[in-house]
Amino acid sequence: MRKKAAVFASGTGSNFEAIINKADLACDIVLLVCDKPGAVVVDKANLRGISTFVCQPKEFHSKEAYEKQIVEKLQEAKVEWIFLAGYMRIVGPTLLNVFEGRMINIHPSLLPKFPGKDAIERAYQAGVDKTGVTVHFVDKGVDTGPIIAQREVPVLQGDTKETLKQRIQQTEHQLYPEVVKQLILKK
């Protein structure tokens, strides 16, 4: 029986697409969770017939109430795994406790360097000669969970923030589906 998974995303959904475009992916993406009603990723999910759940945190009296609503939707869909793909919210204990060890994230740096927001910008400004991509388990910290896989991306002479970002995203789109497949097949 194939495992069921949800993708959480807040923006354009390029990593969402990378995950679902892998025909050999070892699980079914049954739900997209999004915190931004106008996000492009919602249209991409709808075009592919993937159920969407869009809810804004500001509509709830607390983070706990917001995450309880998400947990209910995930349980209704019988979701076993969560893949964060550009989900721009810090996951709290209400959600994390239910999916601990079954929630992964992709981050555009070689963690532990440049955790949190604007990682590509900060790496570029720091003048590093390499950066990269990290896939890690989600824990209660910000980009502090156990690292599953990393891939380096060199910072080339003449790079702009945009060219570096494009190469990092290309690397994300290769690495994330590979890691998802390996994890699902192992469990």
Rank of each mutant, 00 (worst) to 15 (best):
S62I: 01
E100P: 02
K130W: 04
I147T: 10
D143M: 01
H136R: 08
Q150W: 05
D129F: 07
K58D: 13
K140M: 09
I120P: 11
K78D: 14
G141Q: 01
F137Q: 06
Q125C: 07
G92A: 09
E59P: 02
E72D: 12
Q75H: 12
K113Y: 02
G86A: 11
K58M: 11
K117C: 04
A77E: 15
C55A: 11
E67M: 09
A126N: 14
V98D: 03
W81C: 00
L111V: 05
F83P: 00
E67I: 06
P115V: 06
E59V: 02
A149I: 04
P108C: 03
A85C: 09
K58R: 15
P108W: 06
G141D: 00
G92L: 08
M88Q: 09
V138N: 00
K130V: 08
D139R: 00
G101W: 04
K68T: 13
K113R: 14
F99D: 06
P93F: 03
G132N: 13
E121T: 14
K63W: 11
T144R: 00
D139G: 12
E64P: 02
K63G: 10
P108N: 05
T131F: 01
Q150A: 09
I106S: 11
K68R: 14
W81H: 13
G141H: 01
I70L: 02
I147K: 07
P112N: 11
W81R: 03
P146K: 15
G86Q: 10
K63L: 10
F99R: 04
L74W: 06
G132V: 13
A126H: 14
S109A: 15
P146S: 15
Q125A: 15
I70M: 04
V128I: 09
H136D: 05
V142Y: 02
K58P: 00
K113N: 13
V135L: 12
I104D: 00
E59Q: 14
K117Y: 11
A119L: 10
R89G: 08
G127N: 06
V71N: 05
V138E: 02
F99N: 03
N97I: 04
A119P: 10
E80D: 13
H136C: 04
L95H: 00
A77I: 00
L111E: 08
F83R: 03
Q150D: 08
K140R: 13
T131I: 10
V98H: 02
V98I: 14
Q125F: 04
E100F: 10
K117Q: 09
Q150F: 01
D118L: 06
G116D: 11
E100A: 15
Y87M: 07
F60I: 08
G92C: 07
P115W: 07
V133N: 08
V133E: 10
I120F: 13
